[in-house]
Every structure is written in structure tokens, then in C-alpha cells.
Design a binder for these strands. Structure first.
Lengths: 329, 329
DNA sequence: CTTTCTTATGCTCAAGATTAGCATAATCAC
DNA sequence: GTGATTATGCTAATCTTGAGCATAAGAAAG
């Protein structure tokens, strides 16, 4: 196993520089579009690439979460609601910035917010499908997949052995819903990691990936991000898509009162799928997730809708109150 | 974004020592008992308390996971199978070891293994319910809950305001399945955190918790652990209990061939619940999780059982192959 | 070798939850 | 008003689940 040359176990540890970045995927849904808070400094530090709000962990931060909150609220001038830790990334070679004598860890967080009018200077809200265009199936199978699929198949065929080819085939089928497998909206990270591995994510070339062909990228279609931020974003989307099914987190993204269609559109925006309207409503109703405010909302382009609000009591009543996805096929 | 120490702003960060510990919850199930790999050095470093295997992140570790693997395999002389990251803990005040000029992060991992005959010196496998006796409902409601419940109620009553009392009451009901709420086997961490907060976990006093009464602990019944290890273990148990429902991870804990009852007992050990036998078998069968090896196992104390093995193909066929828990009531 | 215990398996019934639609009610844009 | 659009109510057919009954096949005790 690896030991620093100087060490005698179990004792004095070899110190080297570790810096810890707290990085946030801040999500809001506006106009039926899922959006992430993006910091785009013109600085060289990100190579002009889009970045997630982040900042170093400091001594003054009592908890990791409070540190994150401080950074994001300073950068975005927005108050965060729900926050959860996603994952800690620390691969030595997965960022352009190689530090031979130290190490960078990024602790990723997911935060849910409601988009307020004015984002702070040099921050903006961006549609998250800008970074993952293959993830939006709301208007059917995304066309970009037609361009990706042959590349994936090429990678399968390029496998060094029969066995490896089979493994690769299974991987792309499961991840991208090919060869009869069903598209699974939660496999966001798996898909991104696969594209990175194959060399179809711009970041892989920047990091000096051995595989893939730099020119044959899909950069103009899918926006890359700085450092490992796109990976963190993928993790956040995946987590959120999973979580809405068994925790009432969507309501953190809704205004205090809303209609069932608005709720459905928000869920659809997050999941990247169309849902069956009547079944969605029945689900919401029978789970007791909402209660009527008594108001009606007109101007929806049709019959006026009942206005509802989140019903706090479900939290006590149900072990896993969430929105199963009655997918419209 | 992260910057190496030598680089100039945009934000010259206050440098301070961060050391990163990789800590593993290594789980095996033997004799229908869920067990964790424990390191118990007689050293002062842990105050003689039980500890999870862990070690500092080092420069030589290419990825966090490979670093963890190296440490655990060195300490336990055991090969790890499945590994997943759990959570990164970094609260400044949640450990006895206060470092005024620095900070300790623990990155917790869950690993699944099969217990091999000989554990390495000063490591051992311990029943995880030793640390969480209230989590084992296989023989009915654990008696320790009768002693805990009045303490929980006392904490509710001690709330400073009506509102706070209501909040507290909801919290204990949901977490511990009181007042009509159902016991949820996944809320392991929530329960531990609550006990810590109330001052019913020995670690809270060690860390200098403001609440609670040191003598009135339950230390002889529930074993504490060093640093934040019990918190990490709780996180691991919770994650595993959730994961078996939608990923075929239990099979990592089973021998290559086994009977359905063995499988059921393993799941029960993990979940801390008794399951309905016939329904459990129907579930396993209809999901296509196992296939017959052709062999029969006699000597089970009854009719011989068919021997089965895990069926790899489910991974491709089903989006979420796992063992829903048909609880026996 | 018979009885009794224990585990393995097959099956069934009823209650609930889901899938996929049909049909009708209100507004909105012209 | 007409047609388009959205809101809601309802239903039939399937599936899934929770709870058990009943039978089969070894093991242990006598």
C-alpha cells in the first residue's frame, strides 16, 4: 500500500497541502426550465468556462454546510433553502489544475432555491440541459443522441477483446437505454462518466485523457464546465431526480401556492420526461401531498385550476412521501 | 475555484492545516448477524474506544477510493468488494480532538465484504447492534426503547416553547416510531443524531455538549466509538438499509451459492426486521434476482432447500433490482 | 418406524396501486 | 360563438402486495 516515505505507522502523518473547495449545485425551476446558478468570471482561473459557485473551506466555518451557505450567499446574493451534501471528489487527475505537492478536494452540495429577480453580477441562471442536452426527453428522444449513438457503438467495437466488447455494450445499453433497455432518468452521472471515459466530454481532453479524439467532441452541443464542475452538476441532477420520488423536495422549488399542472411541469423539467396528467394528479392527491388553498387560478389558457399548497403533515403521515413518476408513453 | 498555494488571488485563501481521514464501514453478515470491522488499538489515540478502520489521505493515492482500499486492506488483511462513498464529515466541534489551527475531515465509505476466518491482529468483527441496540427489531421491539422513550419524552417536555415542544414531539415520533408513527428502519442516522443532540449518546458529552446529563447516559447498553465513527457507522447502516431495496447489493455479502432462507436471514439482519417468508420468496423469484444452481442443501433442519445463485442478468433487465421488504407483522 | 418439529414450496384471496384512456367542464383567443 | 386548451371526474384491466392455508420432505426423539 502507499506510504509516504517518512512515515512509521500508526503515527505522525506526512503533511501535504490539501485544499478543500465547497461547491454548490443550486437549482431553481423557472418557466418550466430547470436552472443552475452559474458563476462566469472572465478570469483566467476558469479559462472562461462556466463554473458552479464555490469557495474554499475556511477555519471560520463551523460546519461544512454553513461554509457552503456563506460562499453561495455571498456570490449569488440569494438565500438558500434546502441543502444536502452530494459527494466528495478528489481524483488526482480529474482537473486541469495539477498540483504536484498537494491535493484539491471538492465537496459538492445540492441546494434548492427559488429564482429571485436579480442574480448578482457575474452570476446567472442557466438551463441545466445546456450542459447535458441528452438528458431532456420532454419533447421525445433528444436528437443529439442520434449523433452520440454511433460514437458509443464505435467505442464498443473498439474494445480490445470479445469480453470487453460485451461489457462495453452492456454499459452503453443500460446507461443510454439502447438495445431494448429502458431510458432511466436517474443515470445522469453514469452517462456523463461514460462520455468522459470515451472521450466525448471536452473535460476529458483538457485533463489529458488517453482515449478519444479531441476534434471529434460534441463541444458546441454540450457546454463543458471548469474543473470537475460538470461532474458535480451531473451528480446533483441525478440525486435530485432520484429524491423527488421519495421526499417532497420539489416543493422547495415551488411558490407557496401553485396549481397541479405547475407542479407537474416542474417535476417534468427536473426529470426530463413527460408525465401522464391524470395519473400524476391522482398520485399527488392520494398521497396527501397538497391541500387546496380555496383559490382558483384563471388565465392558464383553459378552465381555471384549483390553487393548492404543500401539506406539511405528510411528513409525519407517510414514511416516503414523494412523486412517483407516472410516465406518459 | 481551487488554486494551488503558490498562486495569486482572486481570493488568497487563509491557509490552514486540513487533514483528511478515509474511514470505512466494512460490513459482513455472519451467522445471521450484521458485523462491522473494528480496530481496537490499546492506544491513547482512541481512548481505548472502538474505531472503524481508517487512515489519512496521502499524496500517493490516485483516487480517494484507492486510498481507502489501501488502508483497510493493510489494517484488516481482507479484500474489499463493493465500495461506495457515504458522506464527508467536517463539523469543527464534533470530535474530542480539537485542533485550533486546523481541521479534520473524515470521508466515510461503505464497503461490503465476506468475513474471512482470521481478522488481522487488533481488528475484529463486531455485531453492529452493539452500537445501536435500538435498531434490531427482529425479536420484536427492542427493550432498550422502553428505557429511552421516557428520556425522549422528557426532552420534548423540556422544550422552551409550545412550538418547540411540538417540533420535538414530531421529531421523536417520526424517528422512533412513537405515537402511531411507523418504525422506519432507514432512519438510523436521524435516530443517532437525535440521541446525540439530546445528550443520550456518550460522544456528545465527550465533545462537550451543552445539553444532557453525563451520568444519565446509556453507555453500558450502547457502545460508543471514537471520534465521529459511530456517526459514520450510522450513516453506513442507513445507506445499506436503503440500498438493498433497489440495488442487488446483498449478494456481495452472500457466498456464491445459498438458499433463499439464507438470503432472507441476511436481509433481515441488515434491516433489523423480520420478513414474511412466502412473500419474500415470491419477490425474489419474480424479480429474477436468482437462478437455481441445481443443487439441494440438506441439513437445514427441515425439508432440503434448493440452492440458488445471484443472476447477473437482472442488472441489464431491471432498472432497480432490489429486495423490497415484505415485512412480517 | 412413527410421531413431531422444522423448513421448503405451491397457491389463493382480497385489497390496493398503476396504466391508459374516455368524457365532460370551464376559460381563452379570435 | 367556435375551436383550442386546460381542468377534472371516472373506469376497466392489470399488477402488486399483504396474509395465510396447505402440502412436502428431512431431522430428531421415542
Amino acid at each position: 500500500m502507499s506510504q509516504p516515505a517518512t512515515q512509521e505507522p500508526p503515527a505522525p502523518r506526512a503533511e501535504f497541502a490539501v485544499s478543500v473547495d465547497l461547491t454548490a449545485v443550486v437549482v431553481a425551476v423557472t418557466d418550466d426550465q430547470p436552472r443552475v446558478l452559474i458563476v462566469r468570471p472572465a478570469e483566467a482561473s476558469t479559462g472562461g468556462l462556466d463554473a458552479l459557485p464555490s469557495g474554499p473551506l475556511e477555519l471560520g466555518h463551523r460546519t461544512l454546510e454553513s461554509g457552503l451557505r456563506a460562499w453561495v450567499e455571498a456570490q449569488a446574493r440569494a438565500k438558500l433553502g434546502y441543502i444536502e451534501q452530494l459527494y466528495t471528489f478528489g481524483d488526482r487527475d480529474r482537473t486541469a489544475l495539477k498540483v504536484p505537492t498537494g491535493r484539491i478536494l471538492s465537496i459538492g452540495y445540492l441546494a434548492l432555491a427559488r429564482e429571485t429577480g436579480a442574480a448578482a453580477a457575474n452570476t446567472s441562471w442557466q438551463d441545466w440541459y445546456r450542459y447535458f442536452p441528452w438528458e431532456d426527453w420532454r419533447r421525445g428522444r433528444p436528437p443529439i443522441l442520434d449523433r452520440l449513438e454511433p460514437r458509443l457503438r464505435g467505442w464498443v467495437a473498439a474494445g480490445p477483446s470479445r469480453g470487453e466488447q460485451t461489457t462495453r455494450k452492456t454499459r452503453i445499453s443500460v446507461a443510454f437505454g439502447l438495445d431494448g433497455a429502458r431510458w432511466s432518468e436517474e443515470r445522469v452521472l453514469e452517462r456523463y462518466e461514460l462520455l468522459y471515459e470515451i472521450g466525448l466530454a471536452a473535460e476529458a481532453h483538457r485533463d489529458g485523457s488517453p482515449t478519444g479524439d479531441p476534434e471529434s467532441d460534441v463541444p458546441t452541443e454540450a457546454q463543458p464546465m471548469t474543473a470537475d464542475h460538470r461532474r458535480i452538476l451531473a451528480t446533483g441532477i441525478a440525486r435530485l431526480r432520484g429524491k423527488i420520488k421519495y421526499r417532497p423536495v420539489v416543493f422547495e422549488l415551488m411558490p407557496p401556492a401553485f396549481t397541479l399542472l405547475q407542479l407537474q411541469r416542474t417535476v417534468e423539467a427536473l426529470a426530463g420526461l413527460r408525465l401522464h396528467k391524470q395519473n400524476f394528479r391522482r398520485l399527488v392527491a392520494q398521497q396527501g401531498l397538497v391541500e387546496e388553498t380555496g383559490g382558483m387560478v384563471t388565465g392558464t389558457g383553459g378552465r381555471p385550476a384549483r390553487e393548492v399548497r404543500f401539506r406539511q403533515e405528510v411528513l409525519i403521515e407517510r414514511p416516503a412521501p414523494g412523486l412517483r413518476l407516472p410516465i406518459a408513453r
